[in-house]
């Protein structure tokens, strides 16, 4: 990545690349659900893999793996490392 501080959505990360979450655009319940899993602003998140078409993405947060739907993932904004 050329610009270290550019903000991109989670799904724009390369596979294996990590970033820090700077904001999550979603409803209160969704945000809380994510926070209970350790996904909140400031957390480091790594994109592990995608599926074909517009399927979900697999990510790693604090040493745990999660699957997040594509729509939600596109609303998680990160600054790539």
């Amino acid at each position: 990545m050329s610009n270290k501080n550019q903000r991109i959505s989670l799904i724009e990360l390369e596979e294996g690349q990590a970033g820090n979450i700077v904001s999550i655009q979603g409803g209160r319940n969704m945000l809380k659900r994510l926070a209970d899993l350790g996904l909140n602003e400031g957390a480091e998140i790594k994109l592990i893999g995608r599926t074909l078409f517009t399927g979900p993405v697999q990510v790693e947060v604090c040493n745990s793996r999660f699957v997040i739907g594509r729509g939600m993932a596109s609303r998680i904004i990160v600054v790539p490392k």
Binding site: A35, D36, N40, G42, C62, N63
Partner: peptide, 25 residues
């Protein structure tokens, strides 16, 4: 942001702080 999230954030920060203290990877 919403106060409900403030608490959730606090918990996950605390959890990650504790983890950093006790875990060596």
């Amino acid at each position: 942001h919403d106060s409900s999230l403030v608490i959730a954030d606090e918990r996950s920060h605390l959890a990650s702080q504790i983890t950093r203290t006790i875990v060596k990877i």
